[in-house]
């Protein structure tokens, strides 16, 4: 098992966000974490990264307990993050955003090649500040950053959020290609997209996993999906 989250409880101040969440991701798998806004999907990713460390439970990555580690140590073990709202380094150029995401020991030119072969549209903006890119281009750069980080597991948070349908399609294609290369834990509001891109899913509600299964076996018309995903 690549990632095992066991019974974690996570708080923001006094607010109890995650209550005994457990999930697992196998090597090479693509897993979706779905649910309404505010049920704890992003907090689950932040807990895995130890950005918001859980107060109870444990998280193991490749058999090593990473609970309580520093975030940079988790990242150095091969857990990458494509965060919600992209979080570019706006005053760094596109090239510098790629460079800062590439491990020091890795070949930087190979990282540029990988990034710009995956997202050819980005290459013309190499020397531009990332803050000047459009939302779709920033999302591509965010995924490219995760890609060049030589991560074994990518935690991808709401990649389609705020993007035009045409751009969502491009991002979806990029993630489909990425799926063959790496293990993914995907948080996505767009149910169809999430199911298309993943093998399995976990459904969160009020900080708890209420359902899980194979992505191929569910459709947006299912009653439980309607119950937990409709606003």
């Amino acid at each position: 098992m690549m990632l095992e989250v066991e019974n974690i409880d996570t708080y923001y101040g006094q607010s109890h966000i995650l209550e005994g969440v457990s999930l697992a991701v196998e090597e090479g798998e693509s897993v979706a974490l779905i649910g309404r806004n505010g049920v704890g999907k992003t907090t689950t990713l932040r807990s895995i990264l130890q950005l918001t460390p859980p107060t109870e439970g444990s998280i193991t990555f490749r058999g090593e307990d990473i609970t309580g580690m520093e975030t940079f140590e988790v990242a150095q073990r091969g857990v990458g993050w494509v965060p919600e709202e992209r979080r570019m380094f706006a005053h760094l150029t596109v090239d510098e955003n790629i460079e800062v995401s590439t491990p020091p020991e890795a070949d930087l030119d190979a990282a540029y090649d990988l990034a710009y072969e995956t997202f050819p549209d980005l290459e013309q903006f190499r020397d531009k500040d990332a803050g000047t890119l459009s939302g779709g281009q920033q999302q591509m750069l965010a995924i490219a950053r995760g890609l060049v980080g030589q991560n074994d597991l990518l935690l991808i948070d709401e990649p389609s959020e705020g993007l035009a349908p045409l751009i969502v399609e491009q991002v979806s294609e990029a993630l489909e290609a990425l799926r063959a290369e790496t293990t993914m834990l995907l948080v996505e509001q767009n149910f169809e997209m999430a199911m298309d891109l993943t093998d399995r899913f976990y459904l969160l509600d009020h900080g708890q996993v209420v359902e899980s299964g194979q992505s191929d076996d569910v459709s947006a018309d299912d009653e439980f999906i309607q119950r937990y995903l409709s606003a």
Binding site: L49, L51, E70, T71, F72, A75, Q76, W81, P83, R87, F89, A90, H91, L92, E96, V100, S101, P103, R145, G149
Partner: peptide
Amino acid sequence: RAGSEDGEMAQALGI
């Protein structure tokens, strides 16, 4: 420079 803009993101990149 990256850390000055977003320290949390920099950490998540292994810095």
